[in-house]
Design a protein around this nucleic acid. Structure first.
Length: 459
RNA sequence: GUGGUUGUAGCUCAGCUGGUUAGAGCGCUGGUUUGUGGUACCAGAAGUCGCCGGUUCGAACCCGGUCUUCCACCCCA
């Protein structure tokens, strides 16, 4: 054989079994999106570069896949730019399109572009792949699916409450119990920065704080110092490291800490609303916990932020996240449209379910019945029977050639077929068919004129 | 983007300080069994040792490059 073909770094092929399992997750998420009143949209896999560039910070820009212009694009570049060998000035001249990096920014573009056709508040869901020029690791790919549900055109906190319920509903149905939905609010982070006198380094402050569970209190303080936050400010932030107790206890402590900050107080109020409503309505299996260290990188969030952590025994980053963004559409020229949304990381959820063996067995069963092939006449009878069985919604296959029965059985075995139908010379004479239960090894005979009898037994 | 790690049969992996014909288990094919799989026994096929180059009388093994895997940063689903 020639050189074996391959696929690019960070991409994957999916086998039939893998696709079945992925569809199981997709279907579950989609079902609950619809139950909460979200409608589907789709957007192109690539956008104009200026739609995406600059929306995710410098780091994000680096991770966006750029698409080369068509035609003789290099001849259109002026000599100065060309010979400068500067990627950032050359790139916009030779690439005007880019693969989508997430679903939120394209959605914002969609809302602005179709603002006159949309009925607000607009609840949409979107399940499509996104691409990042990242260095792959476990649970990090360069092509992966996001499943997003967003609402634009309302700043009601009821939506945040519903989104928490939505997370709960999906993960409960996937049997992934006790996921931890972490909740914070950008206004609280802004309030803290204000109170400790570090409002100018809000980003550095939150990014450092976000690493608390990873590098510990000392590590966080060290990083803050390195990023130019004063020792006095860090000193004032000390109470944050000792926030404990129930959600409402933490809220009380935060309220006191942030009483001098208008924005901080607003953030506490918003969180309290969400927490109290959720307590009242109850959750099926998830936990909701306030986590002031939760920051999330994307700079467009302005209110609540969510993140769903995989169960602790599984080594995996977050399996979902989201938040409220008050101003996302204004970058495309539409002001005063508040949005809030959440995202499910399909590929990571898959890895978690696989690791915890939570996929139901049935979903991998691609066939209910296999009819063996004993020759032309016999196969015709099998075909007629198959038609009946397929009408009854069974997944049925006929072995296409009359090779050795042993081989056909082996095939049935490898495909995990629960029932094998045998129609040979004898059966044809008696107008009957034999059904072998592959698990138990038992066999039963039915009449060819009464397939319904067999169908009834399967139910 | 920075630093490290991995690659040998379809799969999971052995392979000594470089030595001539590269191994195992599982899987696959055939047979024991011409209408019975999943068990057992017997036989067999299958590898340019990721790719390109270098050192050497000789390279799976040493060196350089490249691709890939995974990991830690960065960032993030």
């Amino acid at each position: 054989m020639a050189q074996k073909p391959s696929i690019p770094k960070g991409t994957r092929d999916f086998s039939p079994a893998e696709v079945s399992k992925r569809n199981y997750i997709f279907d579950t998420i989609k079902k609950h999106f619809q139950r909460f009143g979200f409608q589907p949209i789709e957007t192109p896999s690539f956008e104009n570069s200026d739609t995406l560039m600059g929306k995710y910070g410098d780091e994000g820009d680096r991770l966006i896949f750029k698409i080369l212009n068509s035609g003789d694009f290099i001849s259109k570049v002026d000599d100065v730019t060309y010979s400068s060998k500067n990627s950032s000035s050359l790139t916009p001249k030779i690439s005007e399109k880019a693969l989508r990096y997430d679903l939120t920014v394209p959605f914002a573009r969609y809302v602005v572009q179709h603002q006159n056709e949309i009925q607000f508040p607009f609840k949409r869901y979107q399940i499509q792949p996104v691409w990042r020029a990242d260095r792959p690791q476990k649970g990090r790919f360069r092509e992966f699916y996001q499943c997003d549900a967003d609402v634009v055109g309302s700043n009601s906190l009821l939506l945040e409450v519903e989104l928490v319920q939505l997370y709960d509903a999906v993960f409960t149905e996937l049997k992934l119990a006790n996921v931890n939905i972490k909740l914070n609010n950008r206004k609280i982070l802004a309030g803290i920065a204000e109170v400790i006198g570090a409002q100018n380094s809000l980003i550095n402050f939150t990014v450092a704080l976000d690493k608390l569970d990873k590098i510990g209190e000392e590590g966080v303080k060290k990083e803050m110092l390195e990023k130019g936050i004063s020792e006095a400010s860090i000193e004032k932030a000390n109470p944050l490291f000792s926030l404990t107790g129930s959600n409402s206890e933490q809220l009380d402590a935060l309220q006191y800490l942030l009483s001098s900050s208008e924005i901080g107080t607003k953030g506490v109020e918003e969180l309290r609303f969400i927490v109290e409503y959720i307590e009242d309505v109850g959750l099926l299996s998830a936990n909701l916990s306030i986590d002031v260290t939760l920051a999330r990188g994307l700079n467009y969030y302005t209110g609540a932020i969510f993140e769903v952590a995989a169960p602790e025994k599984v080594q995996m980053g977050s399996i979902g996240g989201g938040g409220r963004y008050d101003d996302l559409t204004s970058i495309f020229g539409l002001n005063d449209v508040s949005g809030v949304g959440i995202s499910f990381g399909l590929d990571r959820i898959y890895l978690v379910l696989e690791e915890l063996k939570l996929f139901p067995e049935e979903i991998e069963q691609s066939l209910d019945v296999l009819c063996l092939n004993f020759g032309e006449k016999e196969a015709l009878a099998a075909l007629k029977l198959s038609t009946e069985l397929r009408k009854a919604n069974l997944k049925v296959d006929i072995y296409p050639t009359d090779t050795k029965i042993q081989k056909q059985f082996k095939y049935a075995n490898n495909r995990d077929v629960p029932y094998v139908v045998l129609i040979g010379e004898q059966e044809l004479q008696n107008n009957s068919f034999v059904v072998k239960n592959m698990k138990e090894g038992s066999q039963e005979t039915y009449s060819l004129s009464d397939a319904a009898d067999f169908i009834k037994r399967l139910r």
